[in-house]
């Protein structure tokens, strides 16, 4: 074969290799598993863990950590700590994990002036969003369900919890899912994983980056289920969105959704959705609910004072976001 032919063939082979490897380099190898846990779909994604990492074992440890949180904190299990707390008339000793989560919840409750509340159990049961037949309760029933709630409704001394009133029902629904995501991430880290994500029905946390670039996190458009509102480029962060489109019912054209304002016991109406970026998913979870109730301005201030970032869609569809988030957001 002549030198020119060799040169041409070499060139072609080089270009082919660049084309193939260049494209493959865009997506690192992914190992994904999904389970139904905590009333939602939980998906764990591991990126190239290296030869020394047992990815199957890491995955199992992550799901196991979340299942443990569910068993401990679900209000729907008779043997959970939440159920025991709801039944208790006096002080109750809880696990260190539950005490930590209650402490975080009470801090967010105080910082938000009661916009976030851990004791909305009776109110949520009254509206019935978790069941088959949600309904609009009457004013008297709502007033009764709000009796005794508030940032001071639970007293926590070490691992000992005391309810201000025996009838109070604790509901950790607005924080436990985020906490479970955090526990799954901790389990992955303990197993030697450095790049991964845990996504519990849209409440997610990222470990490391995505193969040398930030993770691209689509934010659900609150009024178009088929569309993404924006994409955030993030690494080593938690992202949680609270929206009025997640669970709702309509009567006579009025939308009643599941994010209730503890001040009047009715669906908060200042926002369509709030996305919070924070260090932990538990914080992001609680702050997203609190900010949704507070409204765009006060909500964003709360999140930023906590060290987080917020993207808020107001009730009229206006979008606002934290200054530091602007360099990480991409619009469609």
């Amino acid at each position: 074969m002549s030198r020119s032919r060799l040169f041409a063939l070499g060139l072609v082979i080089l270009l082919s290799a660049l084309a193939l490897f260049g494209r493959r380099g865009e997506e690192p190898g992914e190992f994904r598993r999904a389970r139904v846990l905590m009333g939602t779909v939980v998906e764990v994604t591991l990126l190239d863990g290296g030869a020394n990492v047992d990815a199957e074992a890491a995955m199992a440890a992550a799901f196991s950590a979340m299942a443990e949180v569910e068993a401990r904190m679900s209000a729907h299990r008779d043997d959970s700590e939440t159920a025991r707390l709801n039944a208790a008339a006096g002080p109750l000793e809880v696990s260190a994990a539950t005490a930590d989560l209650l402490a975080l919840g009470l801090r967010v409750a105080a910082a938000s002036g009661g916009a976030f509340d851990l004791t909305l159990g009776r109110l949520k049961t009254l509206w019935g969003f978790a069941g088959d037949a949600p309904r609009v309760p009457d004013d008297m029933a709502i007033t009764a369900a709000l009796q005794g709630i508030g940032p001071e409704s639970l007293r926590l001394e070490g691992r000992r919890v005391t309810k201000r009133e025996a009838v109070l029902h604790v509901d950790l629904g607005a924080i436990a899912k985020g906490y479970a995501v955090d526990r799954a991430i901790a389990a992955l880290q303990a197993a030697g994983i450095r790049h991964a994500s845990v996504n519990a029905g849209g409440d997610l946390r990222l470990l490391g980056d995505y193969g040398g670039r930030p993770w691209r996190i689509g934010i659900q458009h609150p009024r178009n289920p088929e569309a993404v509102l924006a994409t955030l480029e993030l690494a080593d962060a938690a992202v949680v969105t609270s929206g009025d489109y997640e669970r709702f019912f309509e009567i006579d054209g009025v939308r009643y959704h599941h994010i209730l304002d503890p001040h009047d016991g009715r669906p908060a109406d200042a926002c369509q959705s709030v996305t919070v970026v924070a260090a932990s998913a538990a914080e992001a979870d609680a702050l997203a609910t609190a900010a949704f109730v507070l409204g765009p301005e006060a909500g964003r201030r709360l999140v930023e004072a906590w060290g987080g970032l917020a993207l808020v869609v107001a009730a009229d569809g206006t979008v606002s976001l934290s200054e530091a988030l602007k360099e990480r957001v991409r619009w469609p």
Partner: peptide
């Protein structure tokens, strides 16, 4: 009903890696 349906293939279809909702 605890059922998960997913499509397995060579790559992803969306412009984002994950969706927060």
């Amino acid at each position: 009903n605890e059922l998960l349906v997913r499509i397995e293939g060579a790559g992803k279809g969306a412009a984002h890696d994950l969706l927060s909702r």
